[in-house]
Write a protein that binds this DNA or RNA. Structure first.
Lengths: 345, 345
DNA sequence: ACATTTTTGATTTACGTACATCAAAAATTC
DNA sequence: GAATTTTTGATGTACGTAAATCAAAAATGT
């Protein structure tokens, strides 16, 4: 049987109350006595029964999730995962509030962070816009003992507790290698389509992609980045113009959202098969395009994993516990038409 | 506040004892009363506090993991993950026993299953060898109310409760597409290196790979399958002979283990760069080969995920609860040199 | 209407921890 | 060595559920 507080008390020759004082480091224990208790804990290999402790404490975790609004499929999927976590809140002792905020808008994000602050939650998860004033707002939350996890897009220099998202430089590099090898011997320029250079994840992907193309596939010319604001309508227009301008285009790397517009433009111009297209995030649209061959590969981050990881980390940080970073690493999924997961309800 | 059993009792106008009888379907409740209680449960949205229930029940889960012995790196990694789960057993209320068994040996596996049976565990996880007598042994476990999950390699027709592993046909197809596209315009035959056709996962991968190569890359000739028994020494010898026999070899798909031998042969014959090599499972060896360029892509299944998923499923099945299949799906990871995860301790 | 069976209520103990209170004992100060 | 402060013990209640016991009440059969 697992040792309990009673066993420690017996072993150390002290009362239950003293064991309790040591375990929850309450004051009023001489250091000699404390040592005795700690030795008993060590020799018995006692580990606190977290379930029983949480029951006794009536512990719960109020969290705020700040997510971009808009009709970006990936972000809506992310929100869906947060809502799924809310449905599990009873058994997980969490109380999650979602705060929507306009995309790519640092000012609005700062305001949302301050609103979150007022709710005095145990932790905040935020899809960050990379701006100094946002970092400042995050610092204020942390100085009040509120745990902060960045989600999907990171905010270095803000002192956030953790980043729940993929290594976007590695993702860009991976896209680069796939692009180089899939286009094989073909010449022709490569286009890069981004959402906005205001978010860290897009900048990082571009950096990784450009680096690999320059290092390993110097024969391919990289065209200037097109910013489509993750807006399907704008993206379609821009890609249409691109295809007319560059008739011998070999590939397109779409590192942001708005893939609906990209696919529409490719299919309307009949370029869907001749181009090598690599995109990000598995959504109903990108899935269909992958299946039909319009998109050749999709790099994905599993939104469900990210949300669950963010919650685990927020809980741990709120309790002052360590996080096993390796276990919380979010991997980059590569999907070809052959390894698409079964569609979910 | 979450409703408790007391709230249900009050709402339904019955005693706590009756609520308990309904919740744990004990006998001695008239159906009218049972209905009253169930309506109260539904209207209050009561969900049992699993932590408190497990505490009161002193619930624990004795499980047996049957794993192949030998120096197969992937299997040793898998065992490491099981041991990591054992270290967490205190907080997870599990008691895990590992039963080693010779690889690819149906008779030994049957015996191990019977030994596991005698221990009367709540569940068994097993890396299956695909043979009728093994399926029969699994059926016996299940008929005694012991949950059975197959791990890594499945056993269809055995009535196992769940398979914790990847879709190996899809994995083979993915390897096929990568092989076809990476070898690009090059002609030359493609070799397939397997461990043993006695295990389902290897057979499935071969099936998927062959199908894609035939459908989409008919120009490439597929050589007869080489079986290396996942033994590095044997594999090196076989691959060496292969390279001498087929000087214009375009690619090798290694769908089993024993990658050390494969890499050694490729590097000694100076074929490491000219060949497109695709292998399975990320181990220290395959990682190094990926980094150096000897291997072009590694398809991986995350052993840690598989073990954790198996445990979750075994727990759920032991409690007669439903499993969210979509959540327990193990994905196929594709690693290129660009998206290798950071090495762990 | 009686005996018999079935159903229900009331109550208690337990799981392992948290937390509070009050008294007793030990250590410290002057 | 008395007064004071600090440390420790003893004890009880709570968290939400499980499980058992025994008595009381209700339903059933004849």
């Amino acid at each position: 049987m697992r040792p309990t507080v009673h066993d420690i008390a017996a072993k150390a020759g002290v009362s239950l109350a003293t064991v309790d004082r040591v375990l929850n480091n309450r004051p009023g224990v001489r250091s000699v006595t404390r040592d005795k208790v700690e030795r008993a804990i060590a020799t018995l290999g006692y580990v606190r029964d977290v379930a029983a402790a949480n029951l006794a404490k009536r512990r719960n975790y109020p969290f705020v999730f700040i997510l971009p609004a808009g009709d970006n499929s990936f972000m809506r999927g992310l929100e869906g995962e947060v809502r799924a976590a809310m449905a599990r809140s009873a058994s997980e002792r969490t109380q999650i509030t979602i705060l929507p905020v306009p995309a790519f808008d640092a000012q609005a994000l700062v305001q949302a962070l301050s609103e979150a602050h007022q709710r005095r939650p145990a932790g905040v998860a935020v899809v960050a816009v990379d701006a100094p004033e946002v970092a400042e707002a995050v610092k204020q939350l942390r100085s009040d003992g509120i745990a902060v996890v960045t989600l999907v897009s990171d905010l270095p220099g803000s002192g956030r507790d953790h980043f729940a998202g993929v290594d976007n430089i590695a993702a860009g590099r991976t896209a680069g290698t796939l692009m180089g090898r899939f286009t094989g011997g073909r010449a022709g320029p490569i286009a890069v389509l981004a959402g906005s250079m205001l978010v860290r994840d897009h900048r990082d992907r571009l950096e990784g992609f450009s680096a690999v193309m320059a290092e390993e596939f110097p024969a391919h010319r990289l065209l200037p980045v097109i910013e489509g604001q993750d807006d399907p309508v704008l993206v379609e227009k821009l890609v249409h113009a691109l295809i007319e301008r560059e008739p011998d285009l070999a590939g397109i790397y779409s590192l942001g959202a708005g893939n609906r517009g990209l696919v529409a433009a490719l299919e309307k111009t009949g370029k869907s098969k001749t181009n090598c297209t690599i995109a990000h995030e598995l959504t109903p649209h990108s899935r269909a395009a992958l299946r039909s061959g319009t998109i050749d590969a999709v790099l994905n981050q599993d939104a469900g994993h990210e949300v669950r990881s963010a919650i685990r980390v927020l809980k741990a940080k709120a309790d002052g516990l360590a996080v096993i970073e390796a276990q919380e690493r979010i991997r980059i999924d590569i999907f070809l038409k052959d390894n698409l997961p079964i569609e979910q309800a």
